[in-house]
Write a protein that binds this DNA or RNA. Structure first.
Lengths: 205, 205
DNA sequence: TTTTGGTTACACAGACCTGTGTACTTAGGC
DNA sequence: GCCTAAGTACACAGGTCTGTGTAACCAAAA
């Protein structure tokens, strides 16, 4: 249908389409026929690239597992920016929750492979927060990192059922309180809207 | 199989079994045959009580929608006790996340009926927090209530993928910080473990 | 006794699913 | 020209699912 405009490999085309359909409509809701038809290839070709649907599901989740890009901005800013980017993603109409949580919810507790990668993803997110907090010299970075991922996952779950991007904003406000309570300087509150004239610095602790 | 020991109505038996199977294994994963077989009734009987699987799903979710019992304990204690009860539920091996979030994740965004009841449930939880906070005289009870449900849902999502009841504890600690920041007296920290000898009261605000 | 309502057993339609088998085509490299 | 690799078309096996149709059964009420 569009072979000249797609310099990507066939495997990537399959994964891209599977990602879109699995994520937006659910893994169980989409059959391999549907994916093949969407690309315009035969089901046989799909099975030549992936031995089974389970393998395709695993590849789909692994492809979703991307590490956040390293940034040179101050750690506190990076942490709070997480919630801004979350809010932007919530506002997009093709957002449908966390693919890892959804996959675990959908495929049940018996699917070891899916659960394993979901745990790895969640842990990597928590580790990212912990590293930023350590850079800030926060005492119990580990506990606080856990609390921050709770806010992230909580806002995702809430947005999934309520379609309300303001959940990300609420999470950011809560995160700001938690950070400030841990002695982190978050400027005027970190919510961007209020940072106007006086940006009084506040001594940690 | 056990007709004399079940004084409950047939409809309730069906719902009870559907609840167990839907919740533990997933709605899409369980067919009506499986439910009927589990009870020991014919599929025909099941369809005599529920016109379709969709109706059964809706009834399942509605049955899960229970209001928290009114309590005469202090509001702050009630709020924090939420996280204790959450931790207890996480520890139980038959806990598998929030049935409403799971249903939305599983059935997709197009299922209006499911989404509607899920939203109603989430809103009722948020309203419960808001009422307790209003009783405490918290200024922006609404915003804080939202933040608390984020912690609840976040810990549920995290426990779903990680099977770690400590997530409820982390949520409780974060909630304690948020409450104290709003001027609520939460005693020594509200985590139960530390409340030993000196329980110095702290003036609100 | 007769009727009636709930239940059972069981077949079946129609749809969808995963995965395979097979023969055909097409394009590029030798 | 020939060979190989990749893709296509298409049928099909074997399974699951929802929902219905039908005839028989059984117990309690009338």
């Amino acid at each position: 249908m569009a072979p000249p405009t797609t310099p990507q490999t066939m495997k990537e085309r399959i994964l891209e389409t599977a990602d879109k359909l699995f994520y937006l409509q659910g893994i169980r809701a989409i059959g391999v026929d549907t994916i093949a038809a969407e690309i315009g290839i035969s089901k046989r070709t799909l099975y030549n690239h992936f031995p089974s649907k389970d393998a395709l599901i695993a590849a789909y989740l692994e492809r979703r597992f991307v590490q956040p890009r390293p940034s040179d901005k101050p750690p506190a800013e990076q942490i709070l920016a997480t919630f801004d980017s979350l809010e932007r993603r919530f506002a997009a109409k093709d957002f449908r929750g966390c693919p890892f949580v959804n996959a675990v919810a959908e495929l049940g507790p018996h699917d070891r492979a899916v659960k394993k990668i979901a745990v790895a993803f969640k842990e990597s997110r928590r580790a990212w927060f912990r590293e930023r907090l350590s850079e800030l010299g926060v005492a119990n970075a580990d506990a606080l990192a856990t609390q921050l991922v709770l806010l992230v996952d909580g806002s995702i779950a809430q947005d999934l059922v309520r379609d309300d991007p303001a959940m990300a904003r609420a999470a950011k406000e809560a995160a700001t309180v938690l950070l400030r309570n841990a002695g982190v300087d978050v400027g005027d509150g970190g919510d961007g809207t209020v940072k106007q004239v006086k940006r009084h610095k506040r001594a940690p602790q």
